[in-house]
Amino acid sequence: MMHCPHLTHDNQCEVAKQMAGCSVRTTPTACNACQNESNPRAINVVTIGMALVNKKRRKQDVAELQAMLRNYMPDEDPLPQTLKISNYRPGPGNELKKMIAWFAKSSESCNCETRVDTMNDWGAEGCRRNIDTITEWLLEEAQARGLPHGRFTATIARSLVKTAIRKYERKFPEGAPEPDQDDPEDELDR
C-alpha cells in the first residue's frame, strides 16, 4: 500500500470509515484509485464508494451517501464505470494479494485478479483443500517474472497461503459479509 495519512496500520481507510460509521478495509487497488482522483486522500468518488458499499453490506440506509456520490461524479452522460462490491469483498485471495503486493504487482499478462476472486469464492476451507493449486499458481507467476521458483520457494509460497487464510479467518470469524440479495449484478451503479 502507499503512504496515506488516513490509512491505518491494519488497512482501514479513516476517510471512508467516518462516512460509513463503521470500519472500512481498503485494498491497494482502491488506494491507487483514490490517489489518482482530483481530490486524493480525502472525500472523493473512491472513498464515498467504499463507505457506501460497507453501509449497504450492513443493510443500513445509503441514500445520503448515494446523493453525495452523485455530487462528486463528473458531469458525463452516460457514466462509464461502476463500483463493484466484489472489488471490496474480503477473502483469503485478497489477504494473499495484500501480503505479496510489495514485490509482485498484477500485470496485464497474469491471471492474478481471477485467481484472487477464485480464492475469495473458495473461502478459507476451499483454499485449504486447494492449497497445492494455489501454490502452483504462485510458482507459475514467480517463474514468469524471473523470480525463484524451486522447492524452497514452494515451501514459502505454501506458508504464505496458510498465513493469508489465517489472517482472513481472524478478521472475519463468521465469514465474509454478504452484499444485499436485491443487488442484481453485485454492483452499485455510479
Rank of each mutant, 00 (worst) to 15 (best):
C34G: 02
R70Y: 06
W137I: 13
L52I: 09
M119T: 02
S159D: 04
P173K: 08
H149Y: 04
L139G: 01
C127G: 00
A16E: 02
G91F: 04
P90Y: 07
A142V: 05
F172Q: 03
Q12I: 15
Q181G: 11
P40C: 01
A157C: 11
Y168I: 08
K97F: 15
K55P: 01
I156W: 03
P80L: 09
K171V: 09
P148R: 03
R89W: 05
W102P: 01
D77F: 14
E64N: 09
Q181P: 09
A176L: 05
G126K: 06
Q66T: 09
E141A: 15
Q60V: 00
R158K: 12
A157V: 05
R25M: 07
R25T: 07
E95N: 00
D186S: 09
E125Q: 11
D183N: 08
L147I: 02
S23E: 10
E108Y: 13
T163S: 07
A157I: 08
K97W: 14
N44E: 02
T155V: 14
K17N: 07
P92S: 01
D189R: 15
Q181E: 15
G146D: 04
E141H: 12
R70E: 11
Q81F: 15
R70T: 11
P173H: 09
T135A: 03
V45F: 06
H6N: 10
P40D: 01
V24Q: 01
I165L: 06
K97I: 08
D61F: 02
R190I: 15
P184T: 07
W137N: 12
E113R: 13
S159Y: 06
N36R: 10
L52F: 06
K98Q: 13
D182N: 15
T118A: 08
E187M: 14
G175F: 08
T135P: 02
N32C: 08
E64G: 09
A142F: 14
L65W: 07
H9A: 15
Y168D: 07
A30H: 11
I85M: 05
T82V: 15
D75S: 13
E76H: 04
A51N: 00
G91N: 02
R25S: 10
M50H: 07
N39C: 07
R166Q: 13
T118P: 00
L96P: 00
C34A: 01
E140Y: 14
E64F: 11
E169A: 10
N36C: 10
E185K: 14
N71S: 13
G123V: 11
V62N: 01
V45W: 05
H6R: 04
P5A: 07
R58T: 00
E136M: 11
Q60S: 01
P184C: 04
R145D: 01
G49L: 03
L7R: 08
A16H: 03
A67E: 12
T29N: 13
V46Q: 13
S159C: 04
M50Q: 14
N11I: 04
D180F: 10
W102L: 02
S38A: 13
A16F: 04
H6A: 09
P177Y: 03
K105F: 08
G146M: 10
V45G: 03
G49S: 10
R170K: 15
P74R: 05
L96M: 06
Q12M: 06
N54G: 02
E174H: 15
S159P: 00
P173F: 10
M68I: 04
E169P: 06
T29P: 02
A164V: 06
F152G: 11
A176R: 03
R128H: 04
